[in-house]
Design a protein around this nucleic acid. Structure first.
Length: 392
DNA sequence: GTGACTTGTGTCGTGCGCCT
DNA sequence: AGGCGCACGACACAAGTCAC
């Protein structure tokens, strides 16, 4: 799991004005000083043969820093294709903050290459294997550097991470694994690694755009302490990153190789569940049609699903512990019902503390349940869980 | 009207592998 | 190469109550 930790980016972050030892390509006359802050491990410098870099950026997408390798353009259609010439571009792709080394694939890199420069489309297709080889090589270097950098980053992490925390939580908190995974690199990116030189401006903008829309926080949560939210979000992110990396890898591989169903149910069970969901989704989109706001739509679905009869969430009934069942006079109830009964009991016996009505003074019966003389109403809710057991 | 507190489930988003 | 299916994490929401 060397890749589990991130990119060489942290180097950028603190090192934005470090001269970039990017290879300068012959014929690369217009490309300005390589703006891309090359990480410690710059791509193995210049291919022996001058990189066939197009002197004119092929697209606005093209990061000025990555010497747009355009073999076709540089060498002409007949020139022999030199996959090595793509190294800088590949390096740029692999070391991009938005790239997760643990999940990136050669296929994606090739795709990105072609997207970035249409001129590469043909050569990359035609020389896929050669390109893959170069990708693999570059990947090795990048991931090795990432691993090495990770150590340093971890040390300096304290402050940096905190900063990232803030930014991350601002962006919206969480959602999307992509974001979570990328998160590790984000701070570097935002810190100016790329932002400074303006390269990738368009891409950055796109990323931001992508991040905004999906965000949609619960109205409930908003008012909460933002700090807490941020902390929680970060915690989730971190844990998910860890989980995602480990599970995703093992599962996807196991899935293909062994058909290993991680979730335990087995393929059939999974399929069943999956199909169910798909159907629901389809139904919904078909039925409601509009679906302007995901939130509203979701709510609708929710209700519909619930109406279906399935007892989940709060509607789920639990077996009550003995003392609690005595207290509420029932052996089995849903959580809300228990809460209701509890309050019924509390009021009937006037167990609320007069000076602090949030506090409940336990009588013998309640003491048997909560094991204390007085208890806060919220704590009561917490402890309630200890007395609810799976039905069966 | 809102916050606090609980947990299970449905839905969504994302990415990979397989298949055509 | 592109499309599709699957797996999985994250999120939103559901009921009940009281205090503020």
């Amino acid at each position: 799991m060397a890749q589990s930790s991130p990119f060489p980016m942290p180097v950028f972050a603190g090192d934005t004005n470090t001269p970039v030892p990017m290879p300068v390509f012959a014929g690369d006359t217009t490309v300005p000083a390589p703006a891309h802050p090359a990480p410690a491990l710059a791509p193995t410098p210049a291919p022996s043969t001058p990189a066939p870099v197009s002197s004119t950026p092929t697209s606005s997408h093209e990061p000025s820093s990555t010497p747009a390798p355009a073999p076709a353009a540089g060498h002409g259609p007949t020139a022999p294709f030199d996959a090595r010439a793509l190294e800088p571009a590949i390096y740029a792709i692999l070391s991009a903050p938005s790239v997760d080394l643990s999940t990136i694939s050669a296929k994606r890199v090739r795709k990105t290459l072609r997207e970035k420069d249409a001129a590469l489309d043909e050569p990359v297709r035609a020389h896929r294997e050669a390109v893959d080889a170069v990708i693999a090589e570059v990947y090795g270097r990048v991931s090795a550097a990432a691993a090495a950098t990770a150590a340093n980053a971890a040390v300096a992490a304290g402050g940096v991470v905190e900063k990232k925390e803030e930014e991350g939580s601002e962006v919206g908190g969480k959602r999307k694994r992509g974001e979570g995974v990328e998160g590790e690199g984000e701070f570097a990116e935002e810190d100016g690694g790329e932002g400074e030189d303006g390269e990738d401006g368009e891409e950055d903008a796109e990323e931001e755009e992508e991040e905004k829309p999906p965000k949609k926080k619960s109205h409930k949560a908003t008012p909460k302490s933002k700090l807490e939210e941020a902390d929680a979000a970060l915690a989730r992110q971190l844990s998910s990153q860890l989980n995602a990396r480990s599970t995703r890898h093992s599962s996807s591989r196991a899935g293909s190789a062994n058909g290993g169903a991680k979730k335990g149910g087995g393929a059939a069970a999974k399929k069943g569940g999956r199909a169910k969901k798909s159907a629901a989704t389809v139904d919904d989109s078909d039925g409601d049609g509009d679906e302007g706001g995901a939130g509203a739509g979701r709510k609708k679905k929710r209700k519909g699903a619930k109406g279906g009869g399935a007892k989940g969430g709060f509607a789920k009934e639990y077996m009550l512990s003995e003392p609690l069942s005595i207290l509420v006079a029932a052996p089995k109830m849903s959580r809300p019902q228990v809460v209701s009964k509890l309050w019924e009991y509390i009021k009937a016996h006037e167990l609320q503390n007069a000076s602090n009505r949030r506090e409940i003074l336990c009588d013998a019966t309640m003491r048997a349940v909560f094991a204390c003389d007085k208890i806060d109403m919220f704590t009561m809710n917490k402890k309630l869980g200890q007395h609810l057991h799976e039905d069966q």
